[in-house]
Write a protein that binds this DNA or RNA. Structure first.
Lengths: 236, 236
DNA sequence: CAGAAGACCGAACGATCGTGTTATTTTCTT
DNA sequence: AAGAAAATAACACGATCGTTCGGTCTTCTG
């Protein structure tokens, strides 16, 4: 779990070359995408160079290039692979928790773990790409924006469930709650990458915990207490 | 105030060529840095190209290059210029507010205004640079990290003042409070750039307001009420 | 007014980029 | 085992990059 393995970098379910055949070069493709995610998270998707990528893998530029046909397709495939890693690490583990405030808490905990686990040497690749492409129109930007919107949607959805179930104080705004919890994740990635481990992880966890408890009803607080460790101070 | 003017892009007080003389090329230098900030905020500090920059200004590559001597020095000067814009827009206006919770609130309000004012077409250049250079060692990274640390220091300082003055509930953690308020600014820049204006501005303002009121003492709440408009719902 | 200093330009350099073309090797099918 | 198909390599292309050099202006100084 310490690094991006070939298995974790398994390419997209829908291959970019939509022929029905599945060839043996898939193993190479996986290796390429694993290295590509590693490099791109460190240097950015744009400065990622096909030549250096090929050099790192001991293969030729053109051989690598043939797998994607263009740099943009390489970038898109890299983002898709990163999305899978994100999904496996930050979403799937949280599906074990019951819907509502508990799953919301579990999603955030898994996310924080994913961010601070040195899975990507340069921080979450999706955040990297979002910051890099946010105002550079194109397919990469659209894919990244769509992915982040889906993630935000997951958070909002669980906040809404929590409200329906009476785990949040009546009148709470689920979208606002999700936005703020999301902000703590962004800040965690930012702080962790810029300033090193430091207290970032604890800061983010305390922030989430306090915000959740502030928004929770008595029932919600009780359910929260079961999932995680100690209760944070009332308001900090 | 809508765009980066030459005056706002005035170069650093300490010129990179530390000869005592001040030459007439300073006007050119200012124009270069204004354009450089604009381009870098949109395309990134690394992908900023001297050739395109020169083309945009109608001058020659080598003529522009001579002002800095290296691309890294151009990047550093651009960051220093951006730091000055940041200081003028996000810090200076807030110094009118009284120290403590009021100035803390004013700093955040000015910051949000600075972020959502289309001052930089691609979002706050300092955040851009921080995300881009966070794990690329060198002088640029150090300068950006130092700048962001100073900004965070300002927030922590005012939170501490607020605590000393009894504007925050006893036992509050000023550093934690500042960290969370900082997170909302990062999220605002993120959301605003990736998804357009939308509700980002209101989300961030509501988050700050709720967090400040939750942390404030009765005295603090009273002082907050004076500074800004309506009071946010108790906890959202 | 002479001359030095600085600002700026045009051209060129080596390197690297993304991308084709063509050929060779590997793998799969029959 | 033979032939088709896919995977990979070697090489070359035009473009662009950061940087250097030599020269021409402009501006200031004495």
């Amino acid at each position: 779990m310490a690094l991006v393995t070939e298995a974790e970098a398994r390419p997209d379910a829908v291959p970019p070359h939509p022929d029905g055949r599945r060839a043996r070069g898939d193993s190479t493709r996986r290796a390429i995408l694993a290295a590509s995610m590693r490099l791109a998270s460190a240097e950015g998707l744009q400065d990622l160079s096909i030549a250096r990528l090929a050099g790192e893998l001991g293969m030729s530029k053109s051989g690598l290039f043939a797998h994607f046909g263009s740099k943009e397709e390489l970038q898109l495939s890299t983002v898709r692979a990163a999305r899978r890693v994100f999904s496996d690490e930050a979403v799937t583990p949280a599906l074990a928790a019951k819907k509502g405030i508990e799953r919301l808490d579990a999603l955030l905990a898994a996310w924080h773990e994913y961010i601070t686990n040195e899975l990507f040497p340069g921080g979450c690749l999706l955040m990297e790409a979002a910051a890099e492409f946010d105002n550079r129109p194109g397919a990469v930007r659209d894919l990244v924006a769509e992915t982040m919107a889906m993630w935000m949607g997951l958070l909002v959805e669980q906040a809404e469930r929590a409200l329906e179930r009476g785990e949040l104080a009546p009148g709470s705004d689920p979208a606002q709650l999700a936005w703020e919890l999301h902000a703590f994740g962004l800040a965690l990635n930012w702080d962790f990458q810029l300033n090193g481990p430091g207290p970032a992880r604890e800061r983010a966890a305390a922030a989430v915990r306090a915000r959740l408890e502030a928004a929770a009803s008595a029932k919600g607080r009780k359910r929260l207490a079961k999932t995680t460790g100690a209760t944070a101070p009332a308001v900090a």
